[in-house]
Design a protein around this nucleic acid. Structure first.
Length: 446
RNA sequence: GGUCCUAUCGUCCAGAGGCCCAGGACACCGCCCUUUCAAGGCGGCGACGCGAGUUCGAAUCUCGCUAGGACCGCCA
């Protein structure tokens, strides 16, 4: 069989993990896991001005949040380290010296330049974009179109991106480069360096860009950038993962909602699209909701708990069992964990109900009738299950010449303070007889 | 301006010459269920950018046009 693939995600720590980076990391991860290859994390911190350890950590945290893990990296080592470019200076100097001594590079104004020979055809096959051909004189040009030799070592002694990436990918044994489409234009420059050094070229697969609503490349200026901002907005890692996987790719089967494990099973780089994809928050909402529905209630509980706390709800007063079953009663309502937290607030705190509902719309002439009905219902509580309550209510309502519509609506308002909710009897059963009674009493309905 | 890339519903994707007067998903609209819907079920609206070719036959191949994107830093 062919050798194992080694792929890498190589962010520069000049900001948190943003959507574009997360997308690239995700596809590298899927490819590595699908092919049984190795996923390397390399930190490209050659920009001394803007790189920070905090951002590096933030990127690592962001990847972990998404559920991505890697096999080699600055935090866990590996046999191809070090994994930070700032720690690989000797390598960059060594190969630069070789280029210098062979006359393929020269020094000027304190920087090292790689000489571009015109008249060379550069060809490579991209796993996604197919065959790409560029003439060497077009690979690196000034604004006026003249050839511009490539800077490989900056005046501050640090290597440039296009040079370091070649040295690192080669010395780290990377044989499949999966990165954003904004790099296809850089590939010919890098190939010139691969060839000059006699390095074996890796395979390339470029991923379509993710565009904002304005059809422009997502930038920091446009709304949320860090994956953590999506976390703050109530999106689940599984939702973001699933959504991002569907940008520029879809499984042959057409399945749209899947777990990480299923995605690995389904993944095939051959199905990656070439067209830039617009980031559509509505679709994210839907996928996030579907992921919440699939999730174990206890796991979902952990995701929702912080938002309940943020809303000032007395979460600690309740058992996990009660909280988790409340979410089960909620039944998939809400697209984000924030919404789910809001839509379920009445399970934790009656004052949320009284804040938004004053009961003034209940007609006085109806009260005696409702009191009688609800009193009977409380007496016929039984095991408090939906089936039992529902059946009991039906009997009681008809016996009192009332209807579901007439009698259940005020009860819903009294229990939840909302026009819409899960079935009233499910809510009542979940709240329990005492709490239900208390709420009905508050509104003078029992 | 130059180079490279792309071009199917508003958006994300199917479609690798006949199975497509184009299929799914989101959104939107309508209907049903129901005590309510933000849950569930059913249905509708809606696209192959344009023009030439090749072919018995093109969304699929070729060319041109147009449009969009990316890149042109001693940033990565």
């Amino acid at each position: 069989m062919a050798e194992k693939y080694r792929v890498r995600f190589a962010p520069s720590p000049t900001g948190s993990l943003h959507i574009g980076g997360a997308h690239t990391a995700l596809f590298n991860w899927l490819f590595a896991r699908r092919t049984g290859g190795t996923f390397v994390l390399r930190i490209e911190d050659t920009d001394r001005e803007r790189s920070t350890k905090e951002y590096e950590q933030s990127i690592i945290d962001g990847m972990r949040w998404m559920g991505l893990d890697w096999d080699e990296g600055p935090d866990k080592g590996g046999s191809f380290g070090p994994y930070r470019q700032s720690e690989r200076m000797d390598l960059y100097r060594k190969y630069a010296d070789r280029l210098l001594s062979e006359g393929k590079a020269y020094e000027k104004e304190g920087a090292l330049f790689f000489r571009i020979e015109p008249g060379k055809h550069i060809h490579f096959h991209d796993e996604v974009y197919g065959d790409i051909d560029v003439e060497s004189e077009n690979a690196s040009v000034n604004q006026d179109g003249t050839i511009k030799d490539i800077v490989i070592m900056k005046r501050d002694g640090m290597p440039t991106y296009n040079y370091a990436v070649v040295i690192d990918d080669f010395t780290m044994g990377i044989n499949m480069v999966i990165r954003g489409e904004d790099h296809v234009i850089n590939t010919p420059k890098q190939l010139l360096i691969y060839d000059a050094l006699g390095f074996e070229r890796p395979a390339f697969a470029h991923l379509p860009m993710i565009l904002g609503k304005d059809k422009k490349k997502l930038s920091k200026r446009q709304g949320a950038t860090s994956v953590f901002e999506y976390s703050d907005m109530g999106y689940l890692p599984d939702g973001v993962f699933n959504f991002l996987a569907l940008l520029g790719w879809s499984p042959r089967s057409g399945q749209e909602i899947f777990s990480r494990e299923e995605a690995v099973e389904l993944f095939d780089i051959k199905n990656v699209t070439r067209k830039p994809a617009v980031f559509d928050i509505e679709k994210l909402n839907h996928i996030n909701q579907e992921q919440m529905k699939r999730m174990d209630p206890y796991v979902l509980l952990d995701a929702i708990r912080p938002f309940w706390k943020q809303m000032g709800l007395p979460v600690e007063k309740f058992s996990d069992e009660y909280l988790a079953s409340s979410l089960k009663v909620l039944g998939g309502r809400g697209q984000t964990t924030i919404q789910a937290a809001e839509y379920s607030d009445y399970f934790l705190d009656f004052s949320k109900v009284t804040e938004r509902y004053d009961g003034k719309d209940i007609k006085d002439e109806l009260r005696p009738k409702l009191k009688k009905i609800y009193g009977e219902l409380l007496n016929a509580w039984g095991d408090g299950s939906f089936e039992h309550l529902h059946n009991a209510a039906q009997e009681i309502f008809t016996a009192n010449e009332s209807s579901m519509k007439e009698a259940a609506t005020p009860m819903r308002w009294a229990l939840t303070g909302r026009k819409v909710s899960p079935g009233v009897f499910e809510v009542a059963g979940q709240l329990g007889r005492e709490e239900t009674k208390k709420r009905l009493e508050y509104y003078g309905l029992v």
